[in-house]
Design a protein around this nucleic acid. Structure first.
Length: 278
DNA sequence: AACTAAGACAACCGCTTTTCA
DNA sequence: ATGAAAAGCGGTTGTCTTAGT
């Protein structure tokens, strides 16, 4: 249909990259920086699609990438993040420095899916992103017991919703799920109504990890009204942090969730067992 | 030694989202 | 406000390697 191809495929190299191509691409990006992928091949003298160049750079040539030897901790974190996020590989990769989404995806599909399956039911985020064909559950009933995984599709939020249920919990171990994040009593948040100081925050319909960065539940779209609660405009800083990818300052908002470590995910022994209660 | 199946992973494809003129 | 281009993402496929027979 109407969609034009990302590039003309005539005369382009395909398949595995050669050392020379890698060198050319690396040199070009070092000299000119990333971006402009569509024009890059022509400028660099590569007979490759821009998309292919981007993928090669992001997944293999970037200097900060560490390959292979995924540690036990990383493996465990991947499993837990997958339970939390589903097949949001880029988000998962974002919590594992030096790892790429493609690597994690492959590692999951070849190794972890077997380990995680008994407990997690694959944690597939939803019907639209099932496990790859060869690992797909054989029976449709498998989906019936799948945990409800947070839809983590990045959604820019302009408002946040803090439900009005007051709770007095600041200990993750007592929460009903790892997604129940508590705003500590001691925190001071200018935009919070006074009586919302101890407010249970549910993640719903948005990127849970991004949420974690901002420290509050951000109600996306139609969920907003259904929740009932405090409707709070997000300030600029929170909006700037909305992707949760870097430098987000949780302390600023008084939340104790640390995206670097996500320690609570690793420390919560019963986390895998709790997922079904989400 | 030859063949086959399974594992592992690089790369591609098509769609969605974001950016920008 | 809108549409096209660019970038990003996740699913899938292709190919190479390794283990088993």
């Amino acid at each position: 249909m109407g969609r034009s191809p990302c590039c003309s495929k005539e005369g382009l190299n395909r398949g595995a990259w050669t050392a020379l191509e890698d060198k050319v691409l690396t040199s070009y990006i070092k000299a000119h920086g990333e971006g402009k992928w569509r024009n890059l091949p022509k400028r660099a003298g590569l007979k490759r699609c821009g998309k292919s160049c981007r993928l090669r750079w992001l997944n293999y040539l970037r200097p900060d990438i560490k390959r292979g030897n995924i540690s036990g901790d990383e493996e465990e974190l991947i499993i837990r993040l997958h339970n939390l996020l589903g097949n949001r590989w880029s988000l998962i990769a974002g919590r594992l420095p030096g790892r790429t989404d493609n690597e994690i995806k492959n590692y999951w599909n070849t190794t972890l899916v077997k380990k995680a399956k008994p407990e997690s039911h694959s944690g597939s985020s939803k019907e639209t992103s099932p496990a790859p064909t060869k690992f797909r559950p054989r029976t449709p009933s498998a989906t019936a017991t799948q945990p409800q995984v947070i839809r983590t599709k990045a959604t820019r939020l302009t408002r946040m919703l803090v439900p009005s249920l007051p709770l007095l919990i600041d200990d993750y171990s007592t929460t009903t799920s790892p997604l129940d994040l508590r705003v500590p009593q001691t925190q001071s948040v200018s935009s919070l109504p006074e009586d919302a100081a101890n407010t249970e925050v549910h993640i719903q319909g948005t990127d849970a990890m991004n949420f974690g960065c901002n420290g509050f539940q951000a109600a996306a779209g139609e969920d907003e009204d259904a929740m009932g609660g405090y409707d709070i405009p997000l300030d600029d800083g929170m909006l700037n942090d909305w992707t949760g990818n870097d430098n987000c300052d949780l302390e600023k908002y008084g939340a104790s969730l640390d995206l670097d470590s996500l320690a609570f995910l690793l420390d919560s022994d019963d986390w895998l067992g709790q997922e079904n209660s989400i």
